[in-house]
Design a protein around this nucleic acid. Structure first.
Length: 921
RNA sequence: GCGGGUGUGUUGGAAUUGGUAGACAAGCCAGACUUAGGAUCUGGUGCUUCGGCGUAUGGGUUCGAGUCCCUUCACCCGCACCA
């Protein structure tokens, strides 16, 4: 009987859907396992073969865990709010919901063909009001909370108000936006509006004036991770800095916990490192410099990680955006400073990035006094100091900081080295090593000792204090767009007020056009009656990461109308055991999600403070493009090997008309009218194409659609092949060349069960040799899957099949467990064979075969070896060795024992004539 | 510039963690069966002057190194004036 994958695959896919094979429920009697994929944004282009790579891996793992007796939660959904659908809507007038719906249907169709074991009853869509009700709910919880630094935890805002009433702003140590202190009496005297404004400085979801990435092309602000090289990631429009009032999330309050939490989760080092850099913790010190604008005295606080270099300070620098610039600019320098500020403002973010090597700045006219030396140093203004980090002001030590050095060189400022023997004539000496000189009480100390000594001194003399700074900024949470979650906030007499929980979800209003208004307001301002109880509602919407920050929690309990997730249900599923997705979310979704989860944890809504226990980043699948070479000025194409003899233009050619790099000439002529009468210079009668690895994209004609692979080879082949391609975490080009190999494997496996059209499986007892093949495979598969080495598992199947073929084995005792082993990888064929073997139930309910190491082991006999009469080793030798060979091996071992005499040998494996493996414990 | 990673046949990649390098595939070569083959089956395939030599480069540790340490080179990814 032939292996008819088309029939088999559609048969079992409908069987699983009808029987609800992969439905799961919380069941405290079984151990849980939660396997999650990063849900996709349903784009109009559909899936290409790169997308399912991670999904296949997670599906294999899920099916494996089910066979191992776990209650597996394996859901899928859609990150359905987003810019492309909205852009499309602006161009065509088509409602984003319609486009999104259509794309989702297409994605679902493509995913279904691959045979995933998702519990589709748990599907979520971020754009579904029943879902985003809980996004809005979480936002309101953040609006109604503040962060208490003293207990490192979010608390209800009412508790903050109570503290203000008794002790004013000094009563709490809270994460807050800077503001003037106030007393309890001040607080009581505040108007409603003033109270509201003050609380905004404390709320975890708050409104604040901030410099944002404004993208005029898209008419909206963007998060830092949505901008690359001064251009928007989506669309590639220029992005500029602009000060605007925006909703923000106080992620920075969680910086320390986000950093520490990395210690206890199982992610790759590179990903953790990326997050560490993004959070950017630096231990340092704030020091106050008294500065003088003529006679006027002003305190300027600077942040430094190198207080030890304070004796080398020769000038100070302020960020152009710093409030101190106005205060410290003298009359005489005013014109020059203003000219400089205007210049800085005009520059786009993009230019600032491009010009990091050039140095600019202006003298303020004021002088500061070094609090340790009493020395007078000039105060400069330069854009190399950032307003958003530290205090927006620095002390400059040109001898030991490369940026200060470049600046000092340019403006002829003194450079004073304070580390013994360093040469600063060409560049600064930034290393944290050497002995201090010219540094008063620090002289003679090593740098690593001087740093703490200097901090102690500064603190003791009241000149400053220890300070930890983080690079991580608060997340900007407003987008001036239509296709996102509306904020459940209305403005009552100008005071932002939450829409009550019972009135959620606040659904998106219908509007006729999806563009910003002529007045530059967000699209929601176009809505007819966008009010709540007669008060105007917020018109911006939430960003993409809002809906994806807690979706893994909603999957646990997707239909619950009363809570994001039921407490008992959450207590069962707890966290994601295995999360598979791309590395591109390292500093976006994966930070926000951890923050969001920690917030919900603080309020007691979830029981784990880290959401993703283990995370695997699957590599990208790149495209493999093909080229033809047209001789310049002709319509003649020369084969790859001969092209060097001509002047040619390289042209992308559709990979669907190339096979194994040989061009299908007739198809090529039919491909484009201009190639209809093309001529060819062939080598060995064939046209060989050139190739290159590039991003998979339509414009390079190298997109491979999984549907085509399913048509030609079947889903099981696709699944096996994607795994066989190489290690999961590595990026690799898609190359269809090797696919025949895995397809052949499945055909051979199928044929093993048949003799002609008859099932030929026998009930004979298996031999030790056959059992060895089976158990080697079980051991290998268990080990490999647990280590996410799926490519080697596929190889192991091929080896086992070759060995069984050599043994001519068709025994049920072997083939039945083999089928179960194969089922996570190639579920359709396994299911079909399983049923042909006479089983009524789905193979998904079978058990993973029990591994018996004794059956898998090579036959060997242990021989004792003595050395100097005092030590005994055991040598394991193959049973098949002749007595003479054994004698030789043991004698060889006695000689070898010379160099291992001081170690404890546990086991020595020898192959004829040669010592191979000595295990030392 | 800083941080992380990778480097093995013609190609994708194995090597159970320091123990027979190149498993398993692809490609190629030869043969069988075929009207035909993008079907099936069998055998071969790192280089070699047949002594050996081989895991980017040069050194080191070890009885033993693809694996551990140092040098250099190449490529990939992330961050990029973060004081």
């Amino acid at each position: 009987m032939d292996y008819d994958f088309r029939k088999i695959e559609s048969k079992w896919q409908s069987f699983w859907a009808e029987k609800g094979t992969f439905k799961c429920e919380a069941d405290p009697s079984k151990p849980k396992f939660y396997v999650l994929d990063m849900f996709p944004y349903p784009s109009g282009a559909g899936l290409h073969v790169g997308h399912p790579l991670g999904y296949i891996a997670s599906d294999i793992f899920s099916r494996y865990k089910r066979l191992k007796g776990f209650n597996v939660l394996h859901p899928m959904g859609y990150d359905a709010f987003g810019l492309p659908a909205e852009q499309y809507a602006i161009q065509t007038g088509q409602h984003p919901e319609v486009t999104t719906e259509k794309n989702i249907a297409r994605y679902r169709e493509q995913m279904d063909r691959i045979g995933f074991s998702y519990d589709w009853d748990r599907e979520v869509r971020t754009c579904d009001p029943a879902y985003y009700k809980w996004t809005q709910w979480a936002f309101l919880k953040m609006f109604g909370s503040w962060y208490d630094n003293s207990v490192q935890k979010a608390r209800p805002i009412e508790e903050l108000v109570a503290a203000f009433e008794t002790g004013g702003s000094k009563a709490v140590d809270a994460a807050c936006t800077e503001h003037d202190p106030f007393s309890a009496d001040d607080w009581k005297a505040f108007s409603e509006k003033e109270k509201s404004d003050m609380l905004m400085n404390y709320r975890i979801a708050y409104q604040g004036e901030t410099a944002v990435n404004w993208c005029a092309g898209l008419g909206t602000v963007l998060a830092n991770d949505e901008v690359k090289d001064g251009l928007s990631v989506r669309g590639g429009f220029p992005v500029e800095q602009k000060k605007m009032k925006q909703w923000q999330l106080r992620v920075s309050a969680y910086a320390g916990r986000l950093l520490d939490g990395l210690e206890k989760i199982d992610w790759t080092d590179s990903l953790k490192e990326m997050q560490r850099n993004w959070i950017g913790k630096s231990n340092g010190c704030e020091v106050v410099f008294k500065c003088y604008n003529g006679d006027q005295e002003h305190d300027v606080t600077i942040f430094t990680t190198r207080v030890d270099t304070v004796f080398g300070v020769t000038f100070m620098v302020l960020a152009p955006e710093s409030d101190l610039v106005q205060v410290l600019t003298t009359e005489g320098q005013k014109a020059e400073v203003e000219e400089y500020l205007a210049l800085v403002k005009k520059k786009t973010e993009r230019e600032r990035i491009a010009e990091t090597k050039t140095v600019s700045g202006v003298f303020s006219g004021s002088y500061g006094v070094n609090p340790l030396t009493g020395e007078r140093v000039p105060v400069w203004i330069s854009e190399y100091v950032l307003a958003g980090y530290g205090t927006g002001a620095i002390m400059a030590v040109p001898a030991h900081d490369s940026r200060d050095y470049v600046f000092a060189k340019k403006f002829n400022l003194p450079i004073v080295p304070i580390i013994e023997g360093c040469d600063v004539s060409e560049e600064s000496f930034d290393a944290k090593e050497g002995k201090m000189v010219n540094s008063g009480f620090l002289d003679g100390l090593d740098v690593k000792d001087a740093i703490p000594a200097a901090i102690d001194y500064v603190e003791k003399h009241g000149l400053g204090h220890r300070k930890v700074n983080y690079r991580l900024r608060d997340a900007i949470f407003s987008r001036q767009r239509y296709w996102g979650e509306p904020f459940p906030i209305y403005y009552k007499d100008g005071i932002p007020t939450p829409v009550p929980f019972e009135d959620l979800p606040l659904t998106l209003p219908e509007i006729d056009e999806f563009k910003p208004t002529e007045a530059g307001e967000p699209p929601l301002a176009r809505a007819k009656d966008w009010t709540y109880n007669g008060y105007p509602l917020e018109t911006s919407t939430m960003p993409g990461f809002a809906g994806s920050s807690a979706y893994y929690l909603r999957y646990m309990d997707p239909h619950n109308g009363n809570a994001l997730v039921d407490k008992d249900v959450d207590a069962y599923w707890r966290d994601v055991d295995l999360y598979i997705g791309g590395t591109e979310h390292a500093t976006g979704h994966l930070i926000y999600s951890r923050f969001w989860n920690k917030f919900l944890f603080d309020l007691g809504y979830v029981c784990e403070d880290e959401p993703f226990r283990k995370l695997i980043n699957q590599g990208m699948i790149q495209g493999r493009s093909n080229f033809v070479y047209r001789i310049v000025g002709t319509n003649t194409f020369v084969s790859y090997g001969l092209k060097d003899g001509y002047q040619t233009t390289e042209i992308h050619v559709d990979i669907n008309i190339v096979r194994n790099d040989k061009l299908d000439i007739e198809a090529f002529k039919a491909w484009r009218p201009e190639f209809a009468d093309a001529e060819f210079i062939l080598e060995d009668g064939e046209y060989v194409c050139g190739w290159a690895v590039e991003k998979m994209s339509k414009s390079m004609f190298n997109v491979v659609n999984p549907d085509n692979i399913c048509d030609d080879y079947g889903a099981d082949t696709l699944r096996l092949y994607e795994m066989f391609l190489g290690p999961l975490e590595q990026s690799k080009p898609w190359d269809t060349k090797g696919i025949d190999g895995v397809n052949r494997f499945l055909k051979k496996f199928w044929r093993l069960f048949f003799d002609g059209d008859e099932l030929a499986v026998t009930d004979e007892k298996a031999t030790p040799e056959e059992l060895k093949v089976l158990h080697k495979l079980i051991g290998k598969e268990e080990y490999d899957i647990e280590h996410f080495s799926f490519n080697t598992t596929v190889s192991a199947f091929m080896i086992a099949l070759n060995e069984l073929g050599a043994l001519k084995c068709r025994k049920r005792e072997i083939l039945e467990p083999m089928t179960v082993l194969l089922s996570p990888f190639a579920p359709h064929i396994a299911e079909e064979l399983w049923s042909l073997l006479g089983h009524g139930e789905s193979i998904s309910y079978a058990s993973f075969p029990v591994f018996n190491p004794a059956l898998a082991a090579d036959d060997s006999v242990k021989y004792p070896v003595s050395f100097n009469g005092k030590m005994r080793f055991t040598v394991e030798l193959p049973k098949s060795m002749s007595p003479a060979e054994v004698e030789a091996a043991v004698r060889g071992m006695e000689q070898t024992a010379r160099w291992v005499a001081d170690k404890t040998i546990v086991k020595v494996i020898v192959v004829p004539g040669r010592i191979v493996n000595i295990v030392v414990k």
